[in-house]
Design a protein around this nucleic acid. Sequence first.
DNA 1: TAGATTGTTAATCGATTAACAATC
DNA 2: TAGATTGTTAATCGATTAACAATC
Lengths: 212, 212
Amino acid sequence: MNSVEPNVIPFPTIRRFPAYLRLLKDLAGNGKEWISATTLAEDLKLKPIQVRKDMACTGVEGKPKVGFQVSELILAIEHYLGWDDTTYAALIGAGNLGSALIGYKGFVDNGLRIIAIFDKDRRKVGRQVGGIVISQLEDLAETVKELKIHIAILTVPAEAAQSVAEYAVASGIKGIWNFAPKSLNLPDGVVIQKTDLATSFAELSAKLKASE
Amino acid sequence: MNSVEPNVIPFPTIRRFPAYLRLLKDLAGNGKEWISATTLAEDLKLKPIQVRKDMACTGVEGKPKVGFQVSELILAIEHYLGWDDTTYAALIGAGNLGSALIGYKGFVDNGLRIIAIFDKDRRKVGRQVGGIVISQLEDLAETVKELKIHIAILTVPAEAAQSVAEYAVASGIKGIWNFAPKSLNLPDGVVIQKTDLATSFAELSAKLKASE
DNA sequence: TAGATTGTTAATCGATTAACAATC
DNA sequence: TAGATTGTTAATCGATTAACAATC
């Protein structure tokens, strides 16, 4: 790469990165050192040309007839996503979904560590979930500063989402992963990522309809 | 619409439908009868022109200067997604995430009802989650037929996902909502929808990186 | 009527896909 | 060498956005 460009990677490619990463780690675990775009494509049900384009975004160069070095790809993708560093997160909303996320083992692969839990409900404060004591929301700002927390994972009811998000931003949170089914309006510069079950189910519904 | 076309709606539009639907239901709850694309756009942080294009897909016609009838839009979107009918689902994998989904209240708005739970782990069989008794996986085919179950919600570990999915298909399942971090290879005609935490977090990671 | 808003047609943008030369 | 696979350049496709006439 000779260009001075900051190397912007298209979002569709970024969304495919985790699937590549998992497959590559599997391959590495099985002692495989090289992999071709053709094979990756087959396993992930993508077209080889698309995989080659995606791999080009990682900056890793392949060898004709051989493919790409597995370890090199893993490092490049992990580094691009920042998953080789730990991101500390606070979870807000210790309900069903929140507890499930606390218990989710997969986040270690993403360098994501939930190290604090908050809830508005005073009756929950003091209880533990997954070995972490639930704190009162009022302590958020202090904890964010103290533990160098960058992101908040929002698993509160829809009605509370906007106000809690504003409170989180005021407490120093830079990024919000919003699981509440509510679109958030926050100042520019705050990063928002929504994960919405209904959106995903809508896709499934449309596909089912189309397949009939 | 004079066309004979089956009216294919773009996926990006379908993914926006749930957010429209929620907002429209809020509006209806507040007694609002008409809404303009301009206002919808503002609330959802979209461009008015995009909202008008999306609304055109619903088949609902607006009135210049007035907007769209809220109730008409709600019915059209719900009907398109099939959310005005109940879809019966089986959940496979009664772990943390599975239990959270069982407890999730929002699915009623999507016409989704989880009416059976299965797990491979014999020790879990017989226990209850959210008032539903966990059955052994071997009973899946029978239950699918008996309760007219259309989709399976897969919340099993990655290693088990492919084999369990194959088993579900053999048991008569037509659509799979896959929460396991594993790409599934299934026969054509089976509808697959994945919801992957890592994919969503990768987006967040990239946005955070870009915002620095 | 004047003006806000819709709906349509065309332009733009970005991602996917195709074609093919380069290479080990 | 022959052939599989990469990487680049161009073509295609689909969604977003712009421009503007139609309308209540």
